[in-house]
């Protein structure tokens, strides 16, 4: 999102700030969910082999 403020130095309105906060939160949640999914897939794929590692 190319914020108008970046181009003009103009301040964002309160509503625009709220929306930016919501967008940022959505991105953070999305990233968190993706990390969690990759972790889960790794554990599930390794399965019983986790306990049998050589080291």
């Amino acid at each position: 999102m190319a914020d108008r403020a970046d181009m003009t130095g103009e301040a964002l309105s309160p509503e625009e700030k709220t929306k930016r906060g919501q967008r940022n939160l959505a991105i953070a949640l999305g990233l968190g969910v993706f990390v969690l999914l990759v972790f889960l897939v790794t554990i599930l794929r390794l399965g019983g082999s986790v306990a049998e590692r050589a080291f």
Binding site: M1, A2, R4, T8, Q22, R23, A26
Partner: peptide, 20 residues
């Protein structure tokens, strides 16, 4: 970019729902 064009854009108002 003219001030009028700047005023007319609503990109900064996009919420997560718009992306969904």
């Amino acid at each position: 970019m003219t001030p009028v064009a700047i005023k007319s854009d609503t990109y900064a108002l996009a919420g997560p729902r718009d992306y969904i």
